[in-house]
Design a protein around this nucleic acid. Structure first.
Lengths: 133, 133
DNA sequence: ATAGCACTTAGTGTGCACTCTAAGTCAAGG
DNA sequence: CCTTGACTTAGAGTGCACACTAAGTGCTAT
């Protein structure tokens, strides 16, 4: 349901990313809907490149209950902003790839491996104009 | 200029990601504009999560010259598609975060840590509707 | 009763991408 | 001449996030 392997589930539990997993009569883990919900969050964040350190912070806030809700909001908002940045970065790189594809087409058309434009200048300016962090 | 550390520059050279770096009289590397251009590509791809294995493939095609141009185009187009997918995934997760922020606001307003909605069902459906790969 | 299988634990191994160290070379400045 | 400092090399170390192993337990079916 979460996409996480059995190893990863136990690993996350060891690290403290998930608490109080119930056990059945023979000691096997029985994940509740709440557990699955939380694990889907973890898996989703992880797929988006969040480090385990970061997830531990969030897990800590969750553990602190409602009084940490403003912290949780701030955390989610910061992460939302990070994802927005990543969307923008990817859009910029797509732009770069389209330019590179255009250059490649030119090379194929001319049959010459030499670039017909000042690609260095273009690239430096692309970097400059999309500079951040 | 590339944002890569000295260690990483030499590491990439060892791996064969960059060839024929010129040396000055005392044996120190002197990177050409072409080198910098290529390294900016590598750094950009790396920042976008491309593995070194993948980059090596692309480096191999570059080495093969113009006759591999169609391969290079295909590679770039596939990578462009991957970035588009990532943009879409991030947009979906932003949607999820906004929902989570909404839930948090509800909890803060009600003063109760218990969710007022069936969050499990929402989450499962979110997963289902944005399923891929 | 025994085989088979899914689980349990603690601990170890793996792959990736750096990141650094040790030992050495070279050129410039005082 | 000697120090300083930026480079050179091959190789070792680091941190992350799992992925797996070994040894054992418990349930089920034959």
């Amino acid at each position: 349901m979460t996409g996480l392997s059995e190893y990863t589930l136990r690993y996350y539990e060891r690290l403290g990313l998930i608490d109080d997993v119930q056990r059945d009569a023979s000691g096997h883990r029985r994940y509740s809907n709440k557990d699955v919900e939380w694990l889907i969050f973890l898996a989703t964040f992880r797929e988006m490149g969040m480090s385990i350190q970061e997830m531990l912070k969030f897990a800590g806030m969750k553990r602190s209950g409602l009084h940490a809700a403003p912290d949780r909001k701030a955390f989610l908002e910061a992460y939302r902003a990070k994802l927005s940045d990543e969307v923008r970065d990817r859009a910029n790189v797509i732009e770069l790839i389209d330019w590179k594809l255009h250059i490649l087409d030119q090379k194929i058309a001319s049959g010459s491996p030499e670039p017909l434009e000042d690609t260095f200048q273009y690239l430096i300016q692309w970097r400059e104009s999309h500079r951040h962090r």
